[in-house]
Amino acid sequence: GLAQAFPGARILDGYDALLADSQVDAVYISIPHPGHAEWAIKAAEAGKHVLCEKPLALTAFEADAMMHAARKAGTFLGEAFMYRLHPQTRQLVELIKSGAIGEVRMIKSSFGFAMPGFMPEHRLYANDLAGGGILDVGGYPVSMARLIAGAATGLPFAEPDKVVGAAHLGRSGVDEWASALLHFPGGIIAEISCSISLDQDNVLRIFGTKGRIEVPDFWFAGGDRDVGPGRI
């Protein structure tokens, strides 16, 4: 168990005991998606900083409530897209801002993998646990598209003004593969896709008027995938 794997660690009896512990300053929420909002709000009310796994919430209403609770408590609330904090991402943004590939016109990115087969007991195939590819890995290419479109237009991130998408719903009703087109103000178009039942190349491609950038397995930021460096 956990106590054996981490000798000396204090093991608390439940989440409520964790939030009531004065020696705990911050919590990492990695429970199934439907519990994110409830426990992030409770953590903020207990004065704890929160790093929450993606997706931050299931709805915009939940996300607003979580942010309101953190602001009211004066605590930190962050969504755990680890690649956003990697030096590789910083360099990528700097390349876009410097005009290394000219004006950005199109972004293509995917994050998809294939489960061994249909597994109705697994959270990825469970509707009541908010399964499916969009909420599990779809946020990665969407957040990247918003980051790159923002960097190309002098903003921290950009919001699309048009979104068109389609998905295949499997036997349990969750999206097993999906794709979308995002149009940003200024003409940048992003083509994104995600899946839990289909392997994809998972390469980030950014096309500009003077060149393009390709980064394989971007979402792992070179952590544990031997796929070679990106290229411009």
Rank of each mutant, 00 (worst) to 15 (best):
F61I: 11
K54Q: 11
E38M: 12
P34C: 08
E62N: 14
E45N: 13
A43I: 01
L58D: 04
A43Q: 01
E53M: 11
F61S: 09
A57G: 05
V50R: 00
I29A: 02
F61R: 08
A63C: 08
A63D: 07
L58K: 11
A26I: 04
V50L: 04
D25Q: 13
V50D: 00
E45M: 06
E45Q: 15
A60D: 15
C52M: 02
A57K: 03
P32V: 11
P55W: 13
I29F: 04
A63F: 07
G35H: 08
L56G: 03
D25M: 09
W39F: 14
V50W: 00
I31M: 15
H33K: 12
A40V: 13
H36D: 06
H33P: 05
A63L: 12
A63M: 12
I31K: 11
L58P: 01
I29H: 06
E62Q: 15
E53R: 09
W39H: 14
L51C: 08
E62I: 06
A43H: 00
L51D: 01
A26C: 12
L56H: 03
A40P: 02
H49M: 05
E62Y: 12
K48H: 04
A46C: 10
A44Q: 02
G35F: 13
E62L: 06
A26S: 14
S30R: 12
E62T: 04
K54Y: 04
A46M: 11
A40H: 02
A57Y: 05
L51F: 08
Y28F: 15
L56A: 11
D25K: 13
A43V: 02
T59P: 03
G35K: 05
E62K: 10
K54S: 05
H49C: 05
V27C: 03
G47E: 09
E62M: 10
E45H: 14
A63E: 12
D25H: 09
W39P: 01
I29Q: 08
T59S: 15
A26Y: 05
G35C: 10
A40L: 07
